[in-house]
Computed example of a mutant assay.
Amino acid sequence: MKTDLSFPLPELQVSFASKLQEFRELWLQNALLETVGELEVSNIDIELSKFVSSENLKKLASKGLRGELVFAVPAVLRANPRLLGYYRLLLGYSQKEFYGPGFGVMSLKSMETTGKLNSKAKISIEELCQALCGAASHLVNGLSSSHLNIDLLDDLTLLTVGPQMRGGVNNKLGQKGIVDVFAVIQEILSHAIVSSTREAIEIKNAGGRDVWVKFASDPDIVIRETMADGAIRKILAIEVKSGTDISNIHNRIGEAEKSHQKAKNEGYRECWTVVNVAKLDIAKAKTESPTTNTFYSLKDLMHKKGASYEEFKQNIIAMVGIPSAS
């Protein structure tokens, strides 16, 4: 049966599937169990008795669970500092929250991210474990004994890691979108390129002046011309919002507006925003980012044909001041 109904390709889930395996090997229950398997259980038990109440340990034991599945102890974290990430995820703290100024453990982030203990950390492993165990005690006391099992603990870490993975994948997709737009510009200007690197391309325009197309942090891509007296003419600032979530696009356009306001203040004459959602309400988008001179669709640019792409192409050529390719 033929139908016009179609859904976007589940690219995020494909990315999640491969990323989840990495998380399991480094920060999830698999990593904890592997580390504990190489340690002396008697040493872990001594530390558990020091940091955890007997009531909490008995509750876990009644369900066949070892204490270190919930409670962090120095022996485990010294053997594998990355497991700080496991306990953070289990307790439901985002990276931004946990390593922000409010918790006071910013200096310990290298444990999770690089697997190294920071010799300059102001907090000892013992202090860290005491605080983590205090929070974990509340978790254990709040869980029903009838539901408490090893799968539930794994599920709790996944509930926290989901948004973190989505954020990471979205960041990568965002970076890819910026690279894609840069590549489209590079192809348009290829006949006039003097030199190029991964970060920038140099053009010689019809007036003999150097024009640079560069990656930037805020905005994403800029085009600048070096004048005869050495002054810099700031031609174009481009913001790329390549997320496909239509429900979030207006927040992204608001972010683009902030970048474009900054660009205008720095002297850029033109500001464009490239988006990656279908059926964008241009009238509404213009109210959300009045500084944006033109909105373009990433999909249209990647197809490299059609009215929108041709407009983008001709505008780029005109702005850098070179003739069209023959």
Score class of each variant (00 low, 15 high):
residue 150 I to F: 06
residue 143 L to W: 11
residue 148 L to Q: 09
residue 92 G to L: 01
residue 138 H to N: 06
residue 133 C to S: 08
residue 118 N to E: 09
residue 141 N to P: 12
residue 100 G to K: 03
residue 140 V to G: 01
residue 90 L to R: 00
residue 153 L to T: 06
residue 110 S to E: 07
residue 157 T to L: 09
residue 155 D to Q: 07
residue 99 Y to D: 09
residue 151 D to C: 09
residue 107 S to C: 10
residue 96 K to C: 10
residue 121 A to F: 03
residue 158 L to I: 13
residue 146 S to R: 06
residue 115 G to R: 04
residue 120 K to R: 13
residue 101 P to I: 12
residue 114 T to P: 09
residue 158 L to H: 07
residue 155 D to G: 13
residue 152 L to H: 07
residue 117 L to N: 10
residue 140 V to K: 01
residue 108 L to V: 03
residue 157 T to C: 10
residue 135 A to F: 10
residue 89 L to K: 01
residue 93 Y to G: 00
residue 116 K to V: 03
residue 110 S to C: 06
residue 108 L to Q: 00
residue 125 I to D: 02
residue 116 K to T: 14
residue 115 G to P: 09
residue 152 L to D: 04
residue 89 L to T: 02
residue 104 G to T: 01
residue 138 H to T: 14
residue 116 K to M: 04
residue 102 G to R: 08
residue 89 L to S: 14
residue 130 Q to T: 14
residue 137 S to V: 15
residue 139 L to C: 05
residue 98 F to L: 06
residue 116 K to Q: 15
residue 154 D to E: 05
residue 129 C to Y: 13
residue 100 G to E: 09
residue 143 L to E: 10
residue 130 Q to H: 15
residue 150 I to P: 08
residue 133 C to N: 04
residue 122 K to G: 04
residue 134 G to H: 07
residue 100 G to S: 15
residue 93 Y to S: 00
residue 87 Y to F: 08
residue 88 R to A: 02
residue 99 Y to E: 07
residue 88 R to N: 10
residue 122 K to D: 07
residue 102 G to W: 02
residue 119 S to Y: 01
residue 147 H to K: 05
residue 102 G to H: 07
residue 150 I to R: 09
residue 155 D to I: 12
residue 115 G to E: 05
residue 132 L to A: 14
residue 103 F to I: 00
residue 110 S to P: 15
residue 145 S to I: 11
residue 120 K to I: 15
residue 135 A to H: 14
residue 96 K to I: 11
residue 132 L to N: 07
residue 98 F to T: 03
residue 126 E to T: 12
residue 128 L to D: 11
residue 149 N to S: 08
residue 152 L to M: 08
residue 147 H to M: 08
residue 153 L to S: 01
residue 121 A to Y: 00
residue 149 N to E: 05
residue 142 G to S: 09
residue 122 K to M: 14
residue 93 Y to K: 00
residue 138 H to S: 04
residue 106 M to L: 11
residue 150 I to Q: 03
residue 158 L to D: 10
residue 106 M to E: 13
residue 147 H to N: 10
residue 137 S to N: 07
residue 120 K to G: 14
residue 134 G to V: 11
residue 109 K to F: 14
residue 96 K to H: 06
residue 105 V to E: 03
residue 90 L to Q: 00
residue 103 F to W: 08
residue 118 N to L: 03
residue 151 D to V: 12
residue 130 Q to M: 09
residue 90 L to K: 00
residue 149 N to T: 13
residue 100 G to F: 13
residue 140 V to Q: 02
residue 111 M to Y: 14
residue 94 S to R: 13
residue 96 K to W: 07
residue 92 G to Q: 04
residue 90 L to Y: 00
residue 107 S to M: 03
residue 143 L to D: 11
residue 144 S to P: 07
residue 141 N to Y: 07
residue 146 S to L: 09
residue 96 K to V: 15
residue 143 L to K: 12
residue 109 K to D: 09
residue 128 L to F: 14
residue 148 L to Y: 02
residue 103 F to G: 00
residue 114 T to W: 12
residue 88 R to I: 01
residue 98 F to K: 02
